[in-house]
Amino acid sequence: MSSSRRSERSLISHDEDEVVRLSHHPAIYEVETEALQGLRRRIREFHEKERTLSRHKRRVVRGKAEERGRSFPGTAERPAQRKQVFAAAMKRVNSELRRRADLESRASQAEIAHKALALRRSANFTKPPVADRTADTGMDVIPSRRRRTTVPPAKIGSISQQVKNAQARRDRRA
Rank of each mutant, 00 (worst) to 15 (best):
D136F: 04
R172V: 13
Q84Y: 00
E66Y: 00
N94Q: 11
R121Y: 05
R148E: 05
F72Y: 15
A154L: 06
F86I: 03
Q84K: 10
S105Q: 14
P143R: 11
R148C: 00
L103S: 05
P128R: 12
I142N: 07
A123T: 03
Q167D: 11
K164M: 06
Q84N: 12
G157T: 13
P73Y: 11
E77Q: 15
V130K: 10
R170V: 11
A88C: 01
R70A: 15
D171M: 04
A110M: 09
A110D: 12
R169T: 07
L117E: 15
K164W: 04
S122V: 02
S95P: 00
R70D: 12
A110Q: 14
A166M: 09
T75L: 13
V85N: 04
V130N: 05
T126F: 00
S105K: 14
P143S: 07
S108F: 01
R98F: 03
V151W: 03
Q162G: 06
R92D: 04
A87E: 14
G74C: 07
P129R: 13
L103A: 06
P152E: 08
Q84T: 02
E77F: 12
S105E: 15
K155N: 06
D132G: 04
G138N: 09
A87N: 01
D140M: 14
A65H: 03
P79C: 08
S108T: 15
A168Q: 09
E111Y: 00
R147W: 00
R82V: 06
K91F: 04
P152N: 08
I142M: 10
R98Y: 01
R146A: 08
K64M: 06
T134V: 08
V93S: 04
L119C: 01
P152I: 00
Q109C: 01
V85G: 05
A107G: 01
Q161A: 10
K115C: 03
P153Y: 02
R99A: 11
I112A: 15
E111C: 01
D132Q: 09
S71V: 01
E96D: 06
A174M: 03
N94K: 13
R68Y: 07
R133W: 07
Q84A: 14
E104F: 03
R78H: 11
A101S: 10
F72N: 08
A118I: 10
K155S: 09
P152Y: 01
F86W: 09
